[in-house]
Amino acid sequence: MIALQQATPTPDPLSVPANAPEHCPGTESELAGKADACAGCANQEICASGQVRGPDPALPLVRERMSSVKRKILVLSGKGGVGKSTFTAQLGWAFAADEQVQTGIMDVDICGPSIPTILGIASESVHASSSGWSPVYVQDNLGVMSVGFMLPSSKDAVMWRGPKKNGIISQFLKDVDWGDLDYLIVDTPPGTSDEHLSIVQYLKESGIDGAVVITTPQEVALQDVRREIDFCRKVGIRVLGLVENMSGFVCPNCKTESQIFKPSTGGGRRLAQDMNVEFLGAVPLDPRIGKSADYGVSFLDEYPDSPASIAYLDIIEKIKKQLGDA
């Protein structure tokens, strides 16, 4: 007779350490440190002791700090170079165009913090007060926090392992004096790894209102974006919708639009349909978007008549509608 082997429960992705071996049962499992997969893992002894079980002591502090933030939005994409940070900046500027709306941008792209440059505040630094770190303000109602403010120079590489990345994200959430915010927009790096798991873990109790997923038309980008949407579903994040960046090219002189990245498999619209998420819209490639990012100015303010600006604003209205704020 063949003995039936008891099935090992699937671990919560948020309980699996960044440096865990394949098939890790997760730190909250009864098998933590005792399963066959744990053999040789650097964390085996501490997992087996049960010392890692229980809630993270930072969670109550994050919950308290985030209690004054009305909406929390993640900007995601499995692929790098698709325009997440640029879209995050435009979203922040669009929200903050209303002087009554308090907006914050948190840059958790630890190894590639581009938000300070795009927003024109790369030379600024973080200051501490009795209530915590103060965000760097682009304008009175638009505050920003990024590891880019903490580097000695813009040339310095950030070479951090998972635990240190986890620590700085925790500090951004619990130690930054965000004040009363209507929107906190979180710009993330490509992929579904340390930074993503950390931000979801820390905001789990406070609540994430949704994620905007960014892609470009070509299949090589769409493949990674499918994984990003799957990540959202596995960790319980609502996908507000999909945005297709670089969807055609707009000539700044003749205003004619041409396809640069041909959507050989249907592009973002087809992907949204296949994955059953809303297609928020397509933003054409306007060279002045890059120019605005280099000079740290709002593309929406500088070029309001561009088809790209019109597309951005239409997408942002759809996001507000999804959130019930339109």
Rank of each mutant, 00 (worst) to 15 (best):
S114R: 02
P304C: 03
T215M: 07
G210T: 12
V243S: 02
I260F: 13
S153D: 15
T27G: 05
G266N: 06
S193H: 11
G236H: 09
R270L: 03
V225S: 04
K79Q: 08
P152N: 07
P163I: 12
A326Y: 11
I118L: 12
K262S: 11
S298V: 06
I214D: 07
G324T: 12
V136G: 04
A37V: 07
T86I: 04
K262A: 13
L313C: 09
L4P: 01
P263E: 01
V200E: 05
G268T: 06
V126C: 03
D175N: 11
K34F: 09
P17Y: 00
I169A: 10
T88E: 01
G54N: 13
A96T: 06
V136I: 12
L222F: 14
E244H: 05
I73L: 15
S77M: 02
S198T: 15
F299Q: 02
A293Y: 02
D182V: 10
A293C: 15
G210Q: 11
C41L: 08
F87M: 08
P287K: 10
T117H: 12
A326G: 14
D156V: 15
H127T: 15
G268P: 11
I237S: 01
V69H: 05
D314P: 00
Y295E: 14
L61C: 03
E22F: 04
Q201H: 14
P189E: 09
E30D: 15
K320N: 11
S125A: 10
L222T: 09
S114Y: 05
G33V: 06
D209E: 12
I110H: 03
Y137L: 08
F249M: 04
W93K: 00
S292M: 10
Q259K: 09
S114G: 15
G33N: 06
L222P: 13
V283P: 00
S198K: 05
M145T: 03
V136Q: 05
G296P: 09
D107C: 12
M66W: 07
G104R: 00
C111A: 11
I260T: 07
G210F: 13
E22G: 05
G132T: 08
I316Q: 06
F249W: 12
N245Q: 08
C111I: 02
S49V: 02
E317C: 01
E228Q: 11
S258I: 01
S146I: 02
E317G: 07
A37M: 07
A42I: 09
S29C: 07
